[in-house]
Computed example of a mutant assay.
Amino acid sequence: MLKKKVQQLAKKYLNQHISIRRHLHQYPELSFKEHQTCQFVKEKLEAWGIETQIMATTGVIGIIKGKNPSSKTLALRADMDALPIQEINAVNYKSQHDGIMHACGHDVHTTCLLGAAQILQELKEEWEGTIKLIFQPGEEQLPGGASVLIKEGVLHNPSPTAILGQHVEPLLEVGKIGVKAGLFMASADEIHVTIRGKGGHGARPHQCVDTILMAAQLIVQLQQLVSRNADPLMPTVLTFGKIFSEGGATNIIPDEVKILGTLRTFDETWRAAAHERLRKSAQLICESMGGTCNFEILKGYPFLKNNEHLTQLTRQQMEAYLGAENVIDLPARMGGEDFAFYSQQIPACFYRLGVQNPNGTGLHTPNFDIDERSLEVGVGLMAWLATQHKT
C-alpha cells in the first residue's frame, strides 16, 4: 500500500531530515541572498538523481518524473529565506549568522520539500505524472520571489495544473494540519509617509508648523477613513507600526516626521480605491495644517485564495493520510504570503503544519523553534499529496 510506504520512509529518514533542518537553521540567509542554501538544496537533489535548474539566481527547480510523466504535473513549493532577527535560543543548532534567523520556519519548509522529493524519487515507479519542485527565494521581501519566478517562467515547461504550499503553524499541535478553502490570506501593502513642516522650540509652537500634530491627526483620520469606507463584511486592516523623526528632544518640534504602516484586505477593487483615498486624505490633512506630505504605497502581495475544488480534494487526501480528526478548519487571516502570486495564476492550496513546541513562541520572534517530530508529518504528507494529485 502506497500510503504505508510513504509513512515508513518518512519515519525511516526522520533523523536525516532533522539533520538537514538543523543545518539550514544554523546557516540562514536573507531574501535573495540564499546562495549557500541554493547550493545545498541543489546538491541534495542531484545526489538523489533529481534533475535541477537554477532560476531567479538563488531559486532551485527540480523535476521528478513518475509513470506516464506527461499525464499531469503538480508543483510543490517551499520558501528558503530567513529574517533579520538575532536568535536567542540556547540550542546546538543556533544560527551562526549574526542578526539572521529562520524565525518563520522556512528551514522547515525547505526540509519538508527535500524530504518529500527524496521519497517521491524513491517511489517514482508507484505514482503517475510529474512533480515540479519549487525551492523559492525571497518570500520575506518585496517584490516576492514568487513573482520573480513566475516572470522567469516557473509555471511553464512543464506547466503545472496546480500547486501546493506548506507553512508551519506554532499554534497547532504536532500531527495536526490546518486548511481553509477560498480566501485565506490578505493582500499586504507597505505605507511610507513623510510629513514636512517647520520645526522649532516646543515653547513657541505658533512659530512652527507642527509635524508631530500633523502625524497624530493623519493617523487618527486615516483609521476613520478605512472604518467608514470599507465594506464591514470585507476584512480590512490599516496599521501604523512606526513613527519617528531625526534628532529632536522633549522641547523640539522636528522639521520632518516619518510614519510606516501596512494596509491589508481581500478585495482588489477596494484595495485600489483605498490606496487613492488614503493618499489624497493624507495630503489634504497636512496641507490644511500648513505642511506637506509625501505618501508612498509599495504594492505588495495580492490576497491568497485557495481553490475550492483543489482544497476539497486535498483535504480528503490529508484525512486519508492523517485521519479526519487531525485536519483542522482554519479561519482567514490578515497575514500576507507571496504564495498568493501562484494562487492568482493556477489552482492553489496553501495549508498549515502543526509544529507546536513547549516554549509556545510565535513566528518572527527571536526564540521561535519547532517540535522536530513535525518533520515526519510534513515530509510524509507532502509526498503523499503529490502521489494522489488528480488533474
Results as ranks from 00 to 15, higher is better:
residue 305 K to F: 14
residue 264 R to L: 05
residue 270 W to R: 07
residue 267 D to R: 02
residue 266 F to T: 10
residue 308 E to G: 04
residue 269 T to G: 00
residue 285 I to C: 05
residue 296 E to I: 15
residue 308 E to V: 14
residue 299 K to G: 00
residue 262 T to N: 06
residue 275 H to A: 03
residue 307 N to R: 09
residue 294 N to C: 10
residue 270 W to H: 12
residue 311 T to S: 14
residue 264 R to W: 03
residue 290 G to M: 13
residue 266 F to E: 05
residue 272 A to M: 04
residue 293 C to H: 10
residue 288 S to F: 02
residue 276 E to D: 07
residue 266 F to P: 05
residue 300 G to C: 14
residue 294 N to T: 15
residue 297 I to K: 01
residue 291 G to I: 10
residue 304 L to I: 12
residue 294 N to A: 10
residue 297 I to V: 11
residue 282 A to C: 10
residue 269 T to Q: 02
residue 285 I to G: 02
residue 309 H to P: 08
residue 304 L to K: 09
residue 275 H to T: 05
residue 295 F to A: 09
residue 306 N to Y: 13
residue 281 S to W: 00
residue 313 L to F: 01
residue 271 R to L: 09
residue 311 T to A: 09
residue 300 G to N: 15
residue 287 E to I: 09
residue 310 L to V: 08
residue 313 L to G: 00
residue 289 M to K: 10
residue 280 K to V: 07
residue 278 L to P: 03
residue 271 R to C: 03
residue 263 L to R: 04
residue 265 T to E: 03
residue 276 E to M: 04
residue 289 M to L: 15
residue 301 Y to Q: 08
residue 313 L to C: 04
residue 298 L to W: 06
residue 279 R to V: 06
residue 285 I to H: 02
residue 278 L to N: 01
residue 294 N to G: 05
residue 306 N to G: 12
residue 303 F to P: 13
residue 302 P to K: 12
residue 299 K to I: 12
residue 294 N to E: 15
residue 285 I to Q: 06
residue 289 M to D: 03
residue 307 N to I: 14
residue 303 F to I: 03
residue 276 E to R: 14
residue 290 G to T: 13
residue 277 R to A: 02
residue 281 S to L: 15
residue 265 T to M: 10
residue 311 T to N: 12
residue 308 E to R: 12
residue 313 L to M: 09
residue 291 G to Q: 06
residue 290 G to D: 11
residue 296 E to Y: 05
residue 288 S to T: 14
residue 291 G to T: 10
residue 287 E to A: 13
residue 304 L to D: 03
residue 298 L to Y: 12
residue 263 L to F: 11
residue 287 E to C: 05
residue 265 T to H: 03
residue 284 L to E: 07
residue 268 E to Y: 03
residue 282 A to T: 07
residue 296 E to A: 11
residue 294 N to W: 02
residue 262 T to V: 06
residue 271 R to N: 08
residue 280 K to H: 03
residue 289 M to T: 06
residue 310 L to A: 10
residue 308 E to P: 03
residue 287 E to K: 14
residue 280 K to A: 02
residue 302 P to N: 10
residue 284 L to Q: 13
residue 284 L to M: 11
residue 309 H to Q: 15
residue 300 G to Y: 12
residue 267 D to P: 01
residue 279 R to M: 03
residue 298 L to E: 13
residue 262 T to C: 04
residue 275 H to V: 06
residue 309 H to W: 13
residue 283 Q to W: 00
residue 280 K to W: 00
residue 311 T to Y: 11
residue 297 I to W: 00
residue 280 K to C: 01
residue 294 N to V: 13
residue 276 E to P: 01
residue 280 K to R: 08
residue 310 L to W: 09
residue 290 G to A: 09
residue 288 S to Y: 02
residue 266 F to D: 04
residue 308 E to D: 12
residue 307 N to P: 09
residue 263 L to Y: 07
residue 300 G to D: 13
residue 271 R to V: 04
residue 303 F to H: 15
residue 290 G to I: 13
residue 281 S to Y: 06
residue 300 G to P: 15
residue 287 E to N: 13
residue 275 H to I: 08
residue 285 I to E: 02
residue 263 L to M: 12
residue 264 R to S: 05
residue 286 C to L: 01
residue 277 R to S: 03
residue 306 N to Q: 14
